[in-house]
Each structure stands twice: as structure tokens, then as C-alpha cells.
């Protein structure tokens, strides 16, 4: 009976709204592709510039397809700066910081969202408050401290600096809040302690939040420029973003190389995005919890 009704429903639906559907789909596609073009256009410009001679990058009128393709630009970026080493450093920093960030902030967020302790609100306000302070303001005191610890010009300095940012705690806390307390209470009655609850219930449920925190932290560290600028001085610890700046000299700038290097450095992050996409989009649908 139920099945029959459903089938009929679908048939009716198809007949009455197929035209409307087609129209709707076309509209969506039109809007999305127009939008995509705007999104992509600057990258096409970068791509085109990366194949040009330096002197032609800003030449007017602009040509989208260069007269001759300077493939050599993509070779030059590896030779003019130690791009491979810089990439390795960047990957290393991004992975370690992201990992620590995920671990510690989801841990702390659980306490903020689901456990009661004295000073919780005040502490949380401290966390939120520091998000509101621009880094440029306290980077000098921070640098002086790091120097006293003898950590400047090491990767450890940046790792310590960026692995415990309050943003991660905030993001995870907001997500945990939407997980019903009844679920945890039931688990407590079943005899699970808080650590078990965290590992067995919260972590598996928070895949989407973890995925989006991963993306956020990874992209931040990947593209961070001021941090590495302030803390890293020798070439063996420098990152891609610092390398990009080496193409801008006092009286000249190699924008074709900057574009080439920027495009190359985009690839790993995009791969990460594609790999994680299913987590923050599909992971939650089954749990019925949202962030």
C-alpha cells in the first residue's frame, strides 16, 4: 500500500513538473557557471601571466594567450629560489600545526561545551577575546619571548605559536554544542568515562567540524607570510610565501615567476580540499547533527 502510493506520487510529480524542473536546472547551471567564471577568471589571468616574459606581464593591451609560452618560468622557480626545500618546510609546518591544532582544540572544546567547571565562562571569554586582537599588535612581545627561549629561526617557534590558536577551540565548541546532551548522558549511564565518551562518541561525530578546521588551519599556515617573515631568517627554514617575496626585489619584481610559483603552491591545498570534501559535506547527514 505504502509502496504503491509512493510510486504514484513520483509519477505525478514527474509529469507535472518536468518542464519546471528543466527550467530550474538550467537557471541553476546558468547562475553557477557565471559565478564560476568570476571565480576562475583571476586564475586564468595568473596562468596566462605565468607563461609570459616578465616585461610583458602588464603590457597593454592585455593578451590572454601569450605569443610564446615561457615554459622556462616553471623551471626558473625551482632554480632561483630553493623552492623544493621551501615547499617541504611549508608542508611540514602545515601538517604538524594542523595536527596539533585538531588534537588540542577538540580536546579543550569538549570541556568548554560539555563539562562544567569553575571559571568556564571567564576562560572562554579569554579565548574569544584573544581572537579579537590582531596579531600585529602582540607580535613584538611574542617575538621577544621566543628569542629568550632561544627558539627564533626554528620551526618549533611557529609551531608553538600557531598550534594552540583559540579559533580552533571556538569552532569545535560551537559544533559540540549542537550534539544533544542526552546522547552523552546515556553513555555515562552505560559506564563510559569522559575520555571514552570523547573518543568513542564525540570524535566520530565531529568529522565535519574536524575537516573544516583542518582546511582552515592548513590554508592559514600554508599562506601565512608575516609569521615566517618575523621568525625565520635562514634559508633552510623558510617557507613558500617567503620565497614568493624573494621575487619582489627593491627595484624590480618578477611577477611571471610569482604567478607560476603561486599556482604550483595551490595544488597541494586543492588536493587536500578534494580529499576532505566528502567529510564536511556528507559525513553529518547520517548523524543528524549539524554545525
Amino acid at each position: 500500500m505504502m509502496k504503491m502510493l509512493n510510486l504514484n506520487d513520483i509519477k505525478n510529480y514527474r509529469i507535472s513538473s518536468s518542464w519546471k524542473n528543466v527550467f530550474k536546472k538550467t537557471l541553476i547551471y546558468a547562475v553557477l557557471s557565471a559565478g564560476s567564471l568570476i571565480m576562475i577568471l583571476p586564475f586564468l589571468w595568473m596562468l596566462s601571466a605565468s607563461f609570459k616574459l616578465e616585461k610583458d606581464v602588464f603590457r597593454y593591451p592585455f593578451t590572454w594567450i601569450p605569443e610564446t609560452f615561457q615554459w622556462i618560468n616553471y623551471m626558473k622557480i625551482w632554480k632561483k629560489i630553493p623552492f623544493l626545500l621551501f615547499s617541504f618546510n611549508t608542508i611540514k609546518l602545515s601538517v604538524i600545526i594542523t595536527f596539533l591544532q585538531l588534537l588540542t582544540s577538540s580536546f579543550a572544546a569538549y570541556a568548554f561545551a560539555k563539562l562544567k567547571f569553575r571559571g568556564r565562562n571567564f576562560l572562554f571569554l579569554c579565548y574569544i577575546g584573544t581572537i579579537a586582537i590582531p596579531w600585529q599588535v602582540y607580535m613584538v612581545p611574542q617575538y621577544i619571548m621566543m628569542r629568550h627561549l632561544g627558539l627564533n629561526d626554528t620551526h618549533l617557534s611557529l609551531i608553538l605559536l600557531q598550534a594552540f590558536t583559540p579559533f580552533g577551540v571556538f569552532l569545535m565548541r560551537q559544533f559540540y554544542l549542537s550534539i544533544p546532551n542526552e546522547l552523552l548522558d546515556a553513555a555515562r549511564i552505560d559506564g563510559l568515562n569522559e575520555y571514552q565518551i570523547y573518543f568513542k562518541i564525540m570524535l566520530p561525530l565531529s568529522k565535519p567540524a574536524l575537516a573544516s578546521l583542518t582546511i582552515f588551519t592548513f590554508v592559514f599556515v600554508w599562506n601565512d607570510f608575516m609569521g615566517p617573515l618575523i621568525y625565520f631568517t635562514s634559508d633552510k627554514v623558510k617557507t613558500i610565501q617567503l620565497g614568493l617575496r624573494m621575487f619582489i626585489q627593491q627595484y624590480s619584481a618578477d611577477y611571471s615567476l610569482i604567478m607560476a610559483a603561486s599556482l604550483v603552491s595551490l595544488i597541494p591545498v586543492l588536493i587536500l580540499f578534494l580529499a576532505l570534501q566528502r567529510f564536511f559535506i556528507e559525513g553529518i547527514a547520517t548523524t543528524g547533527v549539524k554545525g
Binding site: M139, Y143, M146, L229, D235, R245, M246, I248, Q250
Partner: peptide, 21 residues
């Protein structure tokens, strides 16, 4: 040699010196 990008040279040197480099 401590090589610093030209565009950010002054900021970097300032922070370094303030930190007691």
C-alpha cells in the same frame, strides 16, 4: 648572510633588533 625580502626588510629588521638580535 641573513637575506630578507626587500619589500619587508624594514619591518623584519625592526622586530629583530627590538627582540635583542
Amino acid at each position: 648572510i641573513i637575506n630578507i625580502p626587500a619589500s619587508d626588510y624594514i619591518e623584519k629588521v625592526n622586530v629583530m633588533l627590538s627582540g635583542g638580535d
